[in-house]
Amino acid sequence: MIDFLAAEDRALLERHGLGTFDTLWAKQLKAVDEPNTGRGGWSSVFRLDLEGRGYYLKRQSNYLTRTLHSPLGEPSFAREFRNIRRYRKLGIPALQAAFFGERKVEGEVRAILLTRALDGWDDLDSLLQRWSDLSAAQQSAILKACGQLALRLHGVRQVHGCFYPKHIFLQATGDGYRARLIDLEKTRPMLFGRRDRVRDLEPLLRRAPEWRESQLHELLAVYLEQPSNSSRVGRWVSRLTARRSLKETR
């Protein structure tokens, strides 16, 4: 079986004897949280630091999901890895893979996905927790970055499926913020146009109660490439808030 090993990470991993599936599987590390169980197996995440570069090493056993690509089931990391590569090909800013491989060992299906840590980035969820402490300029720059990220995603007809604050990472730059996505397992092609776009964006708004309506206008103005006081932006705010209200009452 052919594994993926990113050219940019090969030398570093091989210097530490971690350039193969077996060595990454055997590496003893402390899990960053409790393993996910279900689907007949388990999935766990570990932090790996090598010479000042951080990674997240994800391993799973018999943790399968059924897709159109594999109706009988495949490791969920296989789907996420395909989506990571798709995002890179389409130019959507997202996490980057350093290694991927899968094995069948005496009936056990194992998979490894090694991704580069987004050190120096903050997830939007943590920024929202201190939203009132940020300056108006910082808030505006974050809203702009989120709107641009959503525009880029949907502009190439992809739906993230979990467009939540904890999956959007931001890094301050000289003149604002840049943003990228993680957790791509549920990504799929856009099939239903505006309906898919609304469904993808609404969970973000529902999980960002710190945003005032004027700030929703600001984000959507970037996303729709329209003035914030345009009727089109107003209609989108109405659609999204109506869907949010519906979800919150269920």
Rank of each mutant, 00 (worst) to 15 (best):
D22H: 09
Y87E: 08
K247P: 08
L124S: 10
K30T: 15
I112F: 01
Y164L: 10
F77E: 02
T37M: 12
V237W: 02
H16E: 10
K27G: 09
E34I: 11
L127Q: 09
R47Y: 11
R250Y: 13
C162T: 13
A31I: 04
K166I: 11
E14C: 12
E14F: 05
Y164A: 04
V105N: 11
Q129P: 01
L12M: 08
I92V: 15
A98K: 04
Y164F: 12
F163R: 00
L118W: 02
P209N: 06
W211D: 00
L240K: 08
L13N: 02
D9Y: 05
H154N: 03
S43F: 01
K27F: 11
D196E: 09
D33T: 14
L149Y: 00
F100W: 03
D123I: 05
R188L: 09
D123Q: 02
A97L: 00
Y87H: 13
R10K: 13
H154T: 01
T241V: 12
Q139I: 06
Y177N: 04
V156C: 09
R152Q: 10
P93W: 06
F77L: 11
P165L: 05
P35L: 05
V109E: 13
A172N: 08
D196A: 07
F100G: 01
R86S: 12
D175Q: 14
I182D: 02
T115K: 07
L205D: 02
F100E: 02
L181N: 05
P71N: 06
S231I: 11
E185M: 10
P75A: 01
Q138F: 07
G17E: 03
L50E: 06
T65K: 14
Y223N: 02
L50M: 10
T37R: 14
A145N: 03
G52I: 08
T241Q: 15
L95D: 10
Y56W: 11
G38V: 02
L50W: 08
D133Y: 13
Y55A: 06
R88P: 00
R235L: 13
R212I: 09
R157S: 14
E185R: 09
E51R: 07
E106I: 12
R180L: 15
S44Y: 10
F99H: 06
P203N: 04
A6Q: 03
V237A: 09
L246E: 15
I2Y: 14
A172G: 07
E51W: 05
P93V: 04
Y55H: 07
R195V: 15
H217S: 05
K30P: 12
G120R: 04
L216M: 11
P165N: 04
R232T: 15
L72K: 14
Y63V: 00
G40Q: 03
R66N: 12
G91C: 01
G38E: 07
W42L: 09
R244S: 13
D9T: 05
C146A: 12
G41Q: 04
G147T: 03
Q158N: 11
E80L: 00
R197I: 11
E74R: 06
M1C: 12
A26C: 09
R39P: 01
L220E: 03
P227G: 06
P71V: 03
